[in-house]
């Protein structure tokens, strides 16, 4: 088990772990933007750089993907490392001056503003961290969006910038976006993923009518044979709030001596049947549950 020395304190680490993982486990804060624990490191934003001892000279490396193979000495808060991280942040602030999330992180890093003008022309409030693209392909498996173009013209977009046939409207891209650039816009019966102009049929809570996600998500998850969306996301045809309310009702009903509980109890018996009646009635696109029923 190699020892990683961070800012002069020793820590135990496993071979193959990254510097960032060791730091995070031990409560040492290193800013990140393009990093997400559910995804492979990408090391594009460069905000997480630290210094490592290369025997006689210090190299600036990205902590999110530098693998620990043997004992290593790291400086997270050296003057050079801090200057490097702040320099990167200044460049990002010049690109995305509007993002409150980015400004919050900048504040935490002690960066007040940027000396650089705002000159980026393409996709102004995107830092091109690629998280949305990676979550869409690595985790969701839809690969609806990708990086388009190169250099300063790079943007995130759907093929030919047209509504994507591969998008399932799950909203994972919006969820992982660190600067709040991707939005879900709810229309009457569609959900729109905002910068990508993709619209997918919307599911609404059977009880209160609040949006609970897209129809396609349900279908895709079901077709994969794993836990269905029913189990994972929506639970019932209800939104989280209604679900909680129902659960409360059920628990109340389960208390002996309460006569009103019986109907509710029947309805929530384990198995697929309840779902079929509640959720999928009149939904021709559901696959797995339909077959099971």
């Amino acid at each position: 088990m190699p020892t990683v020395t961070i800012d002069e304190k020793p820590y135990r680490a496993d071979v193959g772990e990254t510097i960032l993982e060791v730091a995070q486990r031990n409560g040492i804060w290193i800013p990140t933007l393009c990093h997400h624990q559910a995804l492979e490191p990408y090391a594009a934003c460069r905000i997480c750089v630290v210094e490592i001892d290369r025997g006689g000279w210090w190299q600036v490396v990205t902590s999110c993907n530098y693998p620990i193979r043997r004992a290593l000495t790291v400086r997270v808060n050296s003057e050079r490392a801090i200057r490097a991280r702040r320099g990167v942040m200044e460049l990002l602030l010049a690109r995305c001056p509007e993002s409150p999330q980015l400004r919050r992180l900048a504040n935490r890093m002690g960066v007040e503003g940027t000396p650089y003008p705002h000159i980026a022309a393409a996709q102004e409030n995107c830092i091109l961290c690629n998280l949305c693209v990676r979550v869409c392909s690595e985790r969701i498996g839809a690969s609806a969006i990708s990086m388009v173009g190169r250099g300063g013209d790079r943007t995130v977009a759907t093929p030919f910038r047209m509504s994507s046939e591969d998008c399932i409207g799950c909203g994972a891209c919006a969820a992982v976006c660190p600067v709040g650039t991707i939005d879900l816009i709810f229309h009457e019966d569609e959900v729109e993923i905002s910068p990508f102009e993709t619209r997918v049929t919307l599911r609404r809570c059977a009880e209160c009518g609040r949006p609970v996600g897209s129809e396609l998500v349900n279908e895709v998850l079901a077709s994969r044979g794993g836990p269905t969306l029913v189990e994972m996301l929506a639970g019932d045809a209800y939104c989280l709030r209604c679900k909680r309310k129902k659960l409360a009702e059920r628990l109340t009903a389960a208390v002996p001596g309460n006569g009103s509980g019986r109907a509710a109890q029947e309805r929530s018996l384990p198995g697929g049947t309840n779902v079929q009646t509640g959720l999928h009635a009149g939904n021709p696109r559901s696959i797995r549950v339909g077959e099971a029923g």
């Binding site: 090391a43 934003c45 460049l91 830092i127 690629n130 250099g151 300063g152 790079r154």
Partner: peptide, 21 residues
């Protein structure tokens, strides 16, 4: 280099553009 930067990392993509400016 601005034309040829792949655009993946911040310093190259943004830094070169600022230098050119």
């Amino acid at each position: 280099l601005k034309d040829e930067s792949c655009g993946k990392c911040t310093p190259c993509r943004e830094g070169i553009a600022q230098m050119l400016h």
